[in-house]
Design a protein around this nucleic acid. Structure first.
Lengths: 215, 215
DNA sequence: TTGGTTTTCACTGAAAACCGTGATAATTTA
DNA sequence: TAAATTATCACGGTTTTCAGTGAAAACCAA
C-alpha cells in the first residue's frame, strides 16, 4: 500500500457523518481530511488548501445551503481532478441523471452495505466510476419513462395563470389581478387544459399541486 | 462502571447502522447485541431470547415492513421494561406525538451531534426520558396548531365523491358511477365546499391531493 | 326512543367554466 | 430573417358549477 488517499466527507446529518467517519477510519489506506455539513464548507476548504491533494469527496445529496448535486458540479468545474461519490437516502432518478451528466464518479444508496461502500470508494480511487446495479436500473427506467412522458413546458404566463387557478381564483379574479381581459385568461385555461391533457379545473389543480407549483 | 448495557439498533440503511455501531462500539459501557434492518427482526429476537436482558432499543422511524412507530408500540406492549430511543431523519410533529403517546423514552434527529446521541442514551439508561429541546418545541407547536385546525371529518360517501371530483369526473359521471342522482352529487359537492372551507373544484381537488387521498 | 348524522333527492337562478373558432402583435429561436 | 412560440383579445353557445332552500328516509349512539 502506497500513500493513503485523502478524502473529504460532507453530510448535514452529523450522526451519519460520524458513522461514516468511524467506518472509514478503520481503513489504513484512507485519510479523512475533513468532514463538513454543507457543500460550501467543502468548497471553501478546497479553495484555500489547494496544495493539499484531495482524492475524493463523498457527499450526501440533501444538504442545506448547497446540496450534493450543486457541490458535485462545483467540484467538477473548479477541481476536475477530484473524484466524487454521492451517497443518498433516496433513489431519485432525476437527480441521479443530473449527477451522471455532471460527471459524478459514483452514486450509492445509504442502504448499501458497508462492503459496497468500500468497493465503490476503491473503484473510484482506482479510476473507475461506480454505480450500483440498482442505480443503473433506475437510470434505465428513467430514460424510458422520460420518452413516454414528453415533458410539457409551460410559458411564464401559463404557469402564473395555472397557479392562480389552483389557488381557487375565478377567471375574472385572475384577469383583474394580472390586468388582463377575462377572455385572455379563458384562452390560457383552455390551452392549459389541452396542453396538460386534463379535463377541467380539477385536473389543472391536481397537476399544479403534484408538481409542487404552489409552494 | 458496572456491567455494560445491552442494546439493539434497528435501521434499514445499513450505512447508518454500521456508522452508529462504530460510534457506540467505542463506548465501553455499551454492548451492541443486535443490529437489524426491520422492526420484525428485532421483535423476533426479543421473543426468542427472553432471558437476555436488553436495556435499550435504538430505532429509525422509516423502515420497511414494520416502522419505528410500530416497533416502539410493540416493544412497549410486549417488553415494557425495555427502553426505546427513536432516531429519525425527519422532524414530523405527528409521528413524534404518536411516539410520546406510545411511551417512547426518547427521540432525537439524525442531525443531532454525537454528543447529543450519547447524552440521550445515557439519560434513558439512567431512567430518564430524553427529548431534545428542538423536539419539545416542535411538539408544542403541533399542540397549538392542532387546536387551530379542528380536524374536518368526512363521511364515507363524502370522501368517495371528493376523490372522484379530484379525479376530474363531472357531476353526471360521478352520479352514474355511484348510481345516484345528479342532484345528490351536487349536494355532496356543496357540502364539501362549505365543510372544507374552499371555494370551488380547485379547492376541493387541492385538498384531496394534499391529504393524499388519491393514492 | 330520541336526537344527531348520513344519505338521498329536488328546484331555481346566477355565475362560471367549457368548446369551437378565430385574430393580431410581440418576442424568441432556429 | 423567417418560423415558431408566446401573449393578448373576442364571441356565441352549451354545460357545469355555485349558492340558497328544503326535505325525507336510514342509521347510529346515548
Amino acid at each position: 500500500m502506497n500513500t493513503p488517499f485523502s478524502i473529504i466527507i460532507a453530510d448535514d446529518h452529523s450522526m451519519f457523518l460520524d458513522g461514516l467517519t468511524s467506518i472509514l477510519a478503520e481503513e489504513a489506506s484512507i485519510n479523512i481530511i475533513l468532514t463538513a455539513k454543507t457543500g460550501i464548507q467543502v468548497l471553501k476548504y478546497l479553495r484555500i488548501n489547494t496544495e493539499e491533494n484531495i482524492d475524493l469527496v463523498i457527499t450526501d445529496i440533501n444538504m442545506p445551503e448547497m446540496d450534493g448535486v450543486e457541490l458535485n458540479a462545483a467540484i467538477k468545474e473548479e477541481f476536475p481532478k477530484i473524484k466524487t461519490l454521492v451517497v443518498s437516502m433516496l433513489e431519485d432518478a432525476k437527480k441521479i441523471k443530473t449527477l451522471t451528466e455532471a460527471n459524478a464518479n459514483g452514486y450509492i444508496s445509504k442502504n448499501a452495505e458497508k462492503t459496497e461502500l468500500l468497493k465503490a470508494i476503491k473503484s473510484i480511487l482506482e479510476g473507475q466510476n461506480y454505480f450500483s446495479p440498482r442505480i443503473k436500473q433506475i437510470l434505465m427506467e428513467a430514460m424510458f419513462s422520460e420518452k413516454s412522458e414528453p415533458e410539457i413546458s409551460l410559458s411564464k404566463r401559463e404557469t402564473e395563470v395555472l397557479k392562480l387557478i389552483a389557488q381557487e381564483f375565478t377567471t375574472q379574479e385572475i384577469a383583474d389581478q394580472l390586468f388582463l381581459s377575462k377572455h385572455t385568461i379563458e384562452s390560457y385555461r383552455k390551452n392549459l387544459i389541452s396542453k396538460l391533457g386534463v379535463r377541467n379545473l380539477a385536473g389543472l389543480t391536481r397537476y399544479a399541486v403534484e408538481k409542487g407549483m404552489l409552494d
